[in-house]
């Protein structure tokens, strides 16, 4: 589905990604774990075309998407839920969803499906996004991404700063998406959440994937967590 081969990317004189090889399959959750500065967020931004790769190739269902202008990447079937939510704060919930549906032509059934997944947003459609609670903001960030009807959903630390009930809700939503055949790439730091959601786990360090492990083979005390995440 989504394949990265030898991706090198960075900012200015700094090369952050030092040759990343990585595959995400449809109907699977691929978690990316690593310490701060390992290159996780840069990796997602590079997939979205927001950071231009200096070498390597990114393909989606066999078609090369690396090198496309950033605004053409989501049209190929990729959605990104950035770290810290980064909603369009002064816009309403409905307007945020409308931005999400720009490429899909605002199909009412898509919006309806998204609101079924996050019913709490339905009550807040005319509310300014910045006034939502942290959990609701995260729901909106994911819902906005889902309005694109993505084949691949990139989630950057969606449970960061959320209370346990919200984390459970986000986890259930991710599992539902997985069941519909979406390939989910999830950057996550919580071991428990990773073990509940992931099919495979990629451990990143110094801009490269150092280990790729099937999630079922990992326990909370697995040495990879201590080595690559420091927990």
């Amino acid at each position: 589905m989504l394949e990265l081969k030898g991706i090198r990317a960075g900012y200015g004189a700094v090369t952050v990604l030092q040759g990343v090889d990585f595959t995400a399959k449809s109907g699977e959750v691929t978690c990316i774990m690593g310490r701060n500065g390992a290159g996780k967020t840069t990796l997602l931004k590079t997939i979205m075309g927001l950071v231009a790769p200096r070498a390597g190739e990114i393909t989606l269902e066999g078609a090369v998407i690396s090198g496309l202008p950033a605004h053409q990447v989501p049209g190929r079937g990729l959605a990104w839920v950035p770290q810290g939510r980064r909603l369009f704060g002064p816009l309403t919930v409905a307007e945020n969803l409308e931005i999400g549906g720009l490429l899909g032509g605002h199909k009412p059934q898509v919006k309806e499906r998204v609101l079924e997944l996050f019913p709490r947003l339905r009550e807040r459609l005319n509310q300014q996004a910045s006034t939502l609670s942290g959990g609701e903001q995260q729901m909106l960030a994911i819902a906005r991404g889902l309005c694109l009807e993505p084949k691949v959903l990139l989630l950057d630390e969606p449970t960061e700063g959320l209370q346990p009930s919200m984390i459970a809700l986000i986890r259930d939503s991710v599992l539902q998406l997985k069941a519909t055949g979406v390939a989910v790439v999830l950057v996550e730091q919580r071991v428990e959440a990773v073990l509940q959601m992931a099919d495979q786990v990629a451990f990143m360090a110094q801009g490269a994937i150092r280990a790729m492990v099937v999630a079922q083979q990992l326990s909370p005390n697995a040495p990879e967590f201590a080595e690559f995440v420091g927990v």
């Binding site: 075309g49 989501p74 950035p82 980064r86 694109l148």
Partner: peptide, 16 residues
């Protein structure tokens, strides 16, 4: 308005 708030995220939703 979306571009005004966050140029990078706007691009990630197909806005040129």
């Amino acid at each position: 308005r979306a571009t005004q708030v966050d140029r990078e995220v706007a691009q990630a939703f197909g806005i040129n």
